[in-house]
Amino acid sequence: MDEISVQAADFDPGGEIAALSWGDAGAVASFVGLVRQDGAVTAMTLEHYPGMTEAALADIVVAARARWPLLAVRIVHRIGRLLPGERIVFVGVAAAHRHAAFAACEFIMDYLKTQAPFWKKEETLAGARWVEARESDERAAQRWQDGVTDG
């Protein structure tokens, strides 16, 4: 059973993984993204497009399910103001075998980064600035279309 949540509240990674660990699952792979503690950034605010964001995440899950035999997918993405060290995103995938779980987890994150409408604004001591999209994220999503990482 898939679950997608866009929420201000924190989440419990252990609880998310436990919710994926049932039935025929032989492998659960997960990713947790955090606000980096690199010194300069004092806080980060995440904006989204209510409605489209949830739909875009659901589309990404559909695309992942078309490529790998997945048993369950859970995505939690936080919005609002977050401090360094706080959790931003959880992606977890359950499958019968590890390859599908690892690959689908990475695929979902790569597409989330380039297709799901979220925007980060960083606060620093020098002021606030919108985070610029990175070309490396575009390339990471692009490589799945090139088919080189399908294995």
């Binding site: 380039t114 799901a116 409408p117 925007w119 999209a133």
Partner: peptide, 29 residues
């Protein structure tokens, strides 16, 4: 851009009643 909450290119058609969004490249995750 997005038309009715789907990513859309600049060539995409628009119709009466559409919801059209403009935004910079996304930076979530």
């Amino acid at each position: 851009a997005a038309v009715n909450q789907k990513m859309a290119g600049m060539e995409a058609a628009i119709r009466d009643g559409d919801e059209i969004a403009f935004f910079p490249p996304v930076t979530g995750g």
